[in-house]
Computed example of a mutant assay.
Amino acid sequence: CLFRLALPKVSQMSESESRKKEMDRLLACLNKAVLKIAHSFHDKNSTEDSTVNEAQWFRKIAWNLAVQCDKDPVTMREFFILSYKLSRFCPSDQVILIAQKTCLLMAAAVDLEQGRKASTTSEQTQLLNRALEEINECKHIWNILKETGNFSGDPCETLLLLYEFEVKAKMNDPLLDSFLESLWELPHLECKTFETIALLAVEKPAHYPSIALKALNRALLLYKKKQSIDAVKYSKCVRNLINLLVPDGVPSTELCPPEEIWGYFEDALSFISHTEDYPESETLWLMVKSWNIGIYMYGGKKYVSAEKWCDLSLRFLDHLGSLKRNYETQMNTLYGELVEALSKSKGSVFNEE
């Protein structure tokens, strides 16, 4: 009776302290319902059908309340977990398995998000561990669910992989490498998945730039294999990779040797020269990035490398459209001054110091 009276009321309430209190009250009532139904399962005087019907009804109530809490993720998670707990008293048909999977995915997503915002390491660890429990339980349910039908379009498996990777990376799990070995070989992963792995690999407290580099390379390879390449998405992936290798304009030789960094720029230039859809702003960004590397090399008295990188920058300039006239005169003038300075530098311009 309480729920039948309270539900219409709470659904019409705007976000406020009163609504929060009402939701907390409903949470408490649902927790009591879970205990009551659990007790009924062991009560000889209760019929199984009536107990299952009660569990079904309360499960749906908890689900609907969770959906209404989109602006309060912590409370939303509590309702989804309650819906999951109540669903365990129901027959494990496909409908229930799908509901359980969704509840656990949502709960894990909230715990991961809260973990990113955690103010202390201990709080973050607690949230990540809780997310991992939900992930493992969801994997078990997902494996059962897959036996009941075709779920090829369901993103559950990919989400579980990403969630588990985030937990393991941020907790510095010693089994991370073995987890990744199987992940790299999965045939169904998409470009976006690898790009997300790359982002998570370097999202604090995780710091695995080599994993990020490998993931971005996988993403670029997949983009190139597509019959029709999305130049915008490809360009963003290129930018992420180069930012990883050239943070703050300084090439990171710890990740890969200078010639490989050069190779990524050359690959980007080659791609640009064969497509008209590459965003001009991204071509401009590559032009500036390669020029700045050249200036960095010049400052380090690596004169041959300096000229090479600045020359590469001019090659990017050639592929600019409407922006070309804004930079052409300035860039050519600067390049001329650089070459003149190089010729006056001690030794030949072709001698690297």
Rank of each mutant, 00 (worst) to 15 (best):
I98K: 11
S119H: 11
T196C: 13
C156T: 15
L105C: 02
I211T: 06
P91A: 06
A201G: 08
T120I: 06
Q100P: 05
N136F: 09
I141S: 06
P205T: 13
A118E: 05
A107W: 10
A131K: 05
K139A: 03
P91K: 13
T102S: 10
C191D: 00
L200C: 08
M106D: 06
A206R: 10
T125N: 09
H188A: 06
H140V: 15
T196G: 14
L161Q: 10
S119L: 14
P155F: 14
I197F: 08
H140D: 15
I211Q: 09
L180Y: 03
D154R: 03
D154F: 02
K168G: 00
L97A: 03
T125V: 12
P174L: 12
E190G: 02
A107R: 00
H207C: 11
P91N: 12
I135F: 02
D173S: 11
A131M: 10
C191L: 03
E185K: 12
L180Q: 07
K139D: 04
E134T: 00
K85P: 08
E123Y: 04
Q114A: 15
L145T: 01
L145E: 00
K170W: 12
F179M: 11
Q100R: 11
A109C: 07
P205N: 14
C103V: 05
S122K: 14
T148F: 03
S119I: 13
L200K: 11
E190I: 04
L127P: 05
R88N: 13
Y163D: 00
N129E: 14
C138H: 00
M171F: 10
I211Y: 10
P155T: 14
D173K: 04
S87E: 06
Q124M: 15
K117C: 14
I98V: 07
L180V: 08
E147G: 00
I98H: 04
S152I: 11
A99F: 03
K168H: 10
T125R: 12
S87P: 00
I96N: 04
Y208A: 00
V95M: 13
W184H: 13
L104M: 14
L183D: 15
Q100M: 09
N136T: 13
S87N: 08
F165P: 02
T121A: 14
P187S: 11
F151H: 15
C156V: 10
A198I: 05
R130N: 08
